[in-house]
């Protein structure tokens, strides 16, 4: 097998295709995933190649998408649900949090629900209301779910396959403004990083930036743009479980940490990171863990989103602050 130059959307598509070829029990279901190939073209061509029984254009009902996926999983299938946009997962929230997350425990481990729920998330595409949200903390707050986020084409390709083969339900967040980012993708996944692990996306000495999904690229660009400090960027990849080993090793090394996500800072995933890092390596820290993210407001109309979303300047401003502490 070789490597190919793919967009994130295409890489996800190839990963799905490979999983479907590998296991006939993998199903794809969601609104507009068949004929249209999904509004982000992630499922492009799959219905043509695998048929309508395996790639289902569902009724417009998110609770139904996840609820029936649970039933299909109980019957031995491995459904991959597409939620069209982040803001539309909430009709399915009940099924995800009260049913999907709990079935293993309720059955004393006798049942498993290998359901993947794919959610394009985050802002920055100039879209209308409900199309720019970052709802990950609602899900990381729920035991029983694995929550992961890819940031680049390679991870999209491998993580979707790993998520599908995972025996637990996986919520996979996909950075929608990065769907058209391109990179070389190694098609042989045998050496891939396991699903629950973070990676150091860029090594550095002075400060650790923790990011996932769309803000990984923001952080890499900030680190690149900063000529004065040596900035390490950790791509968390998995939010639940959190790869503490990689995160703590980085923070112990640099002594300074800034978390960057698009979701509101207050009660956001960064709060968990800050608390955990402080608990685990208090004496290694030169400064408190800082957080850069969205505001405690509804996601703004698109002409204000540039202020809401963390950008290079806001990331580097936080780096300045932590360095000056």
């Amino acid at each position: 097998m070789s490597a190919e130059d793919l967009s994130l959307s295409r890489a996800m598509n190839e990963g799905l295709r490979k999983a479907m070829e590998h296991d006939p029990r993998v199903l794809v279901m969601g609104e507009d995933v068949g004929r249209l190939g999904g509004v982000f073209r992630v499922t492009d061509g799959l219905q043509k190649d695998f048929g309508e029984s395996r790639v289902i254009d569902t009724p417009l009902a998110e609770s139904g998408i996840v609820g029936t996926a649970i039933g299909l999983a109980l019957r031995g299938y491995r459904p991959v649900c597409e939620i069209q946009f982040d803001g539309f997962v909430f009709p399915a929230f009940n099924q995800i949090t009260t049913q999907l997350a709990k079935m293993r425990l309720r059955s004393l481990g006798m049942l498993e629900l290998p359901v993947v729920v794919r959610i394009p998330f985050g802002g920055g595409i100039g879209a209308a209301e409900h199309h720019g949200e970052s709802p990950e903390a609602y899900f990381t707050h729920t035991g029983g779910l694995r929550v992961v986020a890819c940031s680049n084409p390679s991870d999209a390709y491998t993580m979707i396959q790993q998520a599908i083969s995972c025996p637990d339900p996986v919520i996979l967040f996909e950075p929608k403004r990065r769907y058209w980012d391109r990179a070389r993708v190694e098609l042989d996944t045998s050496g891939a990083v396991p699903l629950g692990r973070a990676v150091v996306a860029r090594p550095g000495r002075d400060v650790t930036l923790l990011a996932y999904g769309p803000t990984v690229r923001t952080c890499l660009e900030a680190a690149q743009a900063d000529g004065n400090r040596s900035i390490e960027v950790v791509d968390l990849r998995s939010l639940s479980p959190l790869d503490e080993e990689t995160v703590l090793a980085s923070v112990r090394k640099t002594g300074r940490c800034v978390v960057v996500h698009e979701a509101p800072v207050f009660s956001g995933y960064g709060a968990e990171l800050a608390a955990r890092i402080t608990e685990r390596c208090f004496y290694d820290l030169q400064a408190p863990v800082l957080r850069v993210g969205g505001f405690s407001t509804p996601y703004p109309p698109s002409r204000l989103e540039r202020h809401y979303l963390p950008d290079l300047d806001r990331v580097l401003d936080a780096v300045d602050q932590t360095m000056a502490w």
Binding site: F266, F295, S296, T297, P298, P300, P301, R303, L304, H307, Y308, R314, D317
Partner: peptide
């Protein structure tokens, strides 16, 4: 185009400490 302040306006009926804190910090930034 909307004023930056519209980001924080009308989130709550009355002044809300968190919202006002974010507004002030961002202005300072």
């Amino acid at each position: 185009d909307p004023d930056l302040d519209e980001l924080w306006d009308n989130v709550y009926a009355a002044e809300h400490p968190l919202v006002e804190d974010e507004r002030a910090r961002f202005a300072a930034y």
